[in-house]
């Protein structure tokens, strides 16, 4: 474990807590894409298949349980909770996430570290995580006013993968044989997808104006 990876995991945890806080306290999911939340639940479900078979560390297991629990409970809140579901913007959140899942699955079948069920699922989860934010970014473009919690949520979600990139660089130089092209490329693509959001988020913060993305 290195400081970059710890910072990345904590930032990722913060993003989830910010979202749960928003949904649980103000009983609203306005501006949040259910499609993205469903994709994240699928990402964790396919990435943490080894949670009970390969023990890495207590930290690793606890964090996996937190990410699995939070992502599925957010989907449950947005689909089932009578108050929260009313604030879900079904008409605007129309990204066909099936068109993200299928290419990722096909790519995982072709590009993986080993052609085993677990490794294909692991590669699938990495490709899917890279694009899972797209429905949320599309929704942000459509809903003009972005409330602070939603902006913070997306910012933290993008920042966590940026920290991970520093972690991969650090591990590449400090650990022999640490080479994971699949992780590195999908992680880089994922971070780049946030680039324009970061640009507008930083500018809104610098000029102290409300965050809004150009149409």
């Amino acid at each position: 474990m290195n400081i970059f990876r710890l910072a990345g995991d904590m930032t990722h945890l913060m993003s989830v807590l910010v979202l749960l806080l928003k949904i649980h306290t103000i009983k609203s999911c306005a501006g949040i894409s259910l499609k993205t939340q469903e994709l994240y639940a699928l990402v964790f479900a396919t990435r943490y298949l080894d949670i009970f078979t390969d023990f890495i560390s207590v930290y690793n297991t606890i964090m996996k349980l937190i990410f699995l629990g939070s992502s599925f409970s957010i989907v449950w809140y947005m689909r089932r909770h009578k108050l929260v579901r009313r604030s879900y913007d079904k008409e605007q959140d129309t990204f066909r996430h099936f068109f993200l899942v299928l290419p990722c699955l096909l790519l995982a079948l072709v590009m993986n570290e080993k052609f085993t069920f677990k490794e294909v699922m692991w590669a699938f989860s990495l490709y899917l995580e890279a694009v899972a934010i797209l429905p949320q970014l599309v929704l942000l473009q459509r809903t003009k006013n972005i409330d602070n919690l939603t902006g913070q949520y997306v910012f933290l979600l993008g920042a966590y993968r940026a920290f991970y990139i520093f972690n991969w660089i650090y591990r590449y130089f400090t650990e022999p044989h640490y080479v994971h092209w699949i992780t590195w490329i999908s992680g880089l693509v994922q971070t780049l997808l946030y680039a324009d959001f970061f640009y507008y988020y930083f500018n809104s913060w610098k000029n102290n104006v409300k965050l809004h993305l150009p149409a």
């Binding site: 890495i56 690793n60 964090m63 990410f67 080993k114 490794e119 692991w122 972690n167």
Partner: peptide, 10 residues
Amino acid sequence: SPGIILHDEL
């Protein structure tokens, strides 16, 4: 076991 690749990151 050598067969499996251990992914230690979240």
